[in-house]
């Protein structure tokens, strides 16, 4: 069961730190969990694991494809590898290793792709991933999550550590605003209705869940009742929830820090179309563009991924 936080203006622990602290804790009781890093320990806080579990911290150097292949081999030997690198190197750059040595061979690899979309900030366009969800959705059997905040991210990491298969999660390295109260629990493959509403259904995921909630509150003040779903598991998608919540709505908007091609928006569109649900619908996300360099805040505005931008989309649809 989840509970919303009392104060959405507060930020939690930096997300990379959440991942590494949680994993270090998991590794205390599960000696099958191993961690692989590709020369980004200083950037990802996995120095925590290096210190706590030096024998199961595997530094592979700047060699992401080799990291995934090595993780697959460790899986063959019964280990449960977690790996980290920046989103583009965790997906685009190693797709075939993940696909074949990983998914196709029925191995277990848990992948943390950090700094998705505009979160790449000063690393710029070369490091921007607005296609990682699309890629990972297309990989048979892979599970794909986009964490809303620190509480949810910790839950995802603990959950993945108990499972077998290819699991991808994307999250900023920095701290993000809280959505959930401490101690909240979730269900993999189940979306969460964070706010009820009757006019428009907003389906979102990742750290911009906070912005979607801001938008919904502002819309409410203007007399537009918006429902917000946190669809943190993008695959497998909670189609039942979409089908039940779309009933009676005048419009549906998806809101994601990802390309509108192949991500959450596409996944929701597939469900609506296959159930012949004719409702005004809009995918709000990165619109078939490359990323660029600037601060995260600047990029979020530039690529129109703020609460105000979402409000505009909702109004345009109603």
């Amino acid at each position: 069961m989840f509970k919303l936080t009392d104060d959405r203006s507060k930020k939690g622990t930096p997300l990379a730190k959440v991942v590494m602290q949680t994993l270090s804790d998991v590794m205390n009781s599960d000696d099958k969990v191993v961690f692989l890093e590709a020369d980004l320990a200083g950037a990802s806080s996995s120095t925590i694991i290096q210190k706590d579990h030096p024998d199961r911290f595997i530094q592979v150097g700047i060699a992401e494809a080799n990291m995934i292949g090595t993780a697959a081999g460790l899986s063959v030997e019964g280990f449960k590898p977690f790996v980290h690198t920046f989103g583009p190197f965790a997906t685009r750059r190693v797709y075939d290793q993940l696909y074949l040595s990983g998914a196709y061979a029925h191995n277990t690899i848990n992948v943390y792709g950090s700094d998705p979309g505009f979160c790449t900030g000063p690393n710029g366009g070369t490091h921007t991933t607005w296609e990682d969800v699309a890629l990972m959705r297309a990989m048979p059997t892979a599970v794909v999550c986009d964490a809303a905040d620190a509480v949810q991210l910790e839950w995802i990491v603990r959950k993945f550590a108990t499972m077998q298969g290819i699991h991808y999660f994307r999250a900023n390295r920095k701290d993000v605003r809280n959505v959930y109260a401490e101690g909240s629990t979730f269900e993999l493959g189940k979306g969460n209705v964070l706010k009820e509403g009757k006019d428009v259904l907003i389906i979102t995921a990742g750290q911009i869940v906070s912005d979607a909630l801001d938008a919904a509150e502002k819309l409410e003040a203007e007399g537009i009742s918006a429902e917000v779903i946190d669809m943190f598991t993008i695959k497998p998608l909670d189609a039942d929830l979409i089908l039940s919540e779309v009933k009676g709505k005048k419009a549906v908007v998806t809101f994601e820090n990802h390309s509108i091609i192949g991500g959450l928006g596409s996944a929701v569109a597939e469900v609506l179309a296959e159930h012949a649900i004719a409702v005004p619908f809009k995918r709000h996300g990165a619109n078939d563009v490359f990323g660029q360099v600037a601060s995260q805040e600047w990029l979020q505005k530039e690529f129109k991924l703020t609460a105000d931008d979402l409000i505009e989309t909702v109004k345009g649809l109603l």
Binding site: F89, N123, G124, T126
Partner: peptide, 28 residues
């Protein structure tokens, strides 16, 4: 450098900077 809209991104970009003939940033 790294300002929004700059011609000088943290990683070289052949579409943005005169004198830069190849885009790099993903090592290798």
């Amino acid at each position: 450098l790294n300002d929004g809209g700059t011609m000088l991104p943290s990683h070289p970009d052949r579409t943005k900077t005169p004198g830069v003939d190849m885009t790099t940033g993903s090592l290798g």
